[in-house]
Design a binder for these strands. Structure first.
Lengths: 148, 148
DNA sequence: AGGTTACGTTTACAGTTGTAAACTCAAGTC
DNA sequence: GACTTGAGTTTACAACTGTAAACGTAACCT
């Protein structure tokens, strides 16, 4: 069953740990602790707990290396990002998602290439985009009169 | 001090309740319970709990109306959506946000008007977009060599 | 070999969340 | 007026989170 396990849930604090490991590709706890102590007011013990939970959750793999472990990501960063964002968006009113994304885009700094890429993605969607997307906050049948 | 209180945190389950109230603008618990029982496998008691928590959190206002209450949103839907999405995005690697957003856009159905609006927003950003945005997963100083 | 380090594990503990039963009381009914 | 009904409140309880101390033990140094 391949890599799978994209169902792993990563909490906010754990996310900080994963970012370190994703960036370094593989590291030991010493490095993770040193780096995170610089970014946060976390005690080493706290960081150890987070690492432990991530291993138990199956988000990090361990490879014994002498007295310690080498940690590597078991789930790909981009997949985790996509899943987290998609979940967040999915729980919102379908009719208002576009506006929310517009606001986020305004506040998010992105490289020119990324901006251009987004424009391309959208341009491709434009022709097939529906005339309107209705509010889906009420059960099927109940017209979500979100208008106005 | 005005409306404020945008700092309120709304959990996933609570979000479902808010969507009902946001859509109806104002309702009683009976309506909320009936609608949510149709969409989920929640018992009335569960929904009552969620409503109670939202009131305590300051997300819903109550107005006594005879034996019961009329509930109205104390925080605007769009603001809640923007905040939730922005928070989610902020916790991710700055360098990879663009790609994540691209993937979400691909999977999100939006009206033609929304798509066009997003294109406009992006077109406006394009000229001032930086050549590149660096990985910010490691503490300042540590070059996040996220490349490749 | 004994002491020191330090890594990973165990235990702790309060707050939030999902889920729900039980209870209190005022309003409506007969 | 007694009885029923239903809205809101209290209590419950396990899992997940944020935060961290304490501990066991293998490796390292002298």
């Amino acid at each position: 069953m391949a890599t799978a396990e994209l169902a792993v849930t990563i909490s906010d604090a754990e996310w900080r740990v994963m970012r370190i490991v994703w960036t370094l590709k593989e590291t030991d706890s010493r490095t993770i602790i040193d780096l995170l102590e610089q970014q946060h007011d976390w005690k080493p013990a706290t960081i150890k707990t987070l690492i432990g939970r991530l291993v138990k959750k199956g988000a990090l793999a361990t490879t014994k290396q002498g007295r310690q472990f080498i940690y590597t990501p078991l789930i790909p960063e981009q997949a985790a990002m996509d899943t987290a964002l998609t979940n967040e968006i999915s729980q919102m009113c379908a009719m208002h998602r576009g506006t929310a994304i517009a606001h986020v885009l305004e506040d998010t700094e992105m490289s020119r290439a990324d901006v251009q890429n987004l424009i391309d993605v959208l341009a491709k969607k434009l022709p097939t985009a529906p005339e309107s997307v209705h509010c889906d906050c009420l059960p099927d049948g109940c017209e979500g009169s979100c208008a106005e």
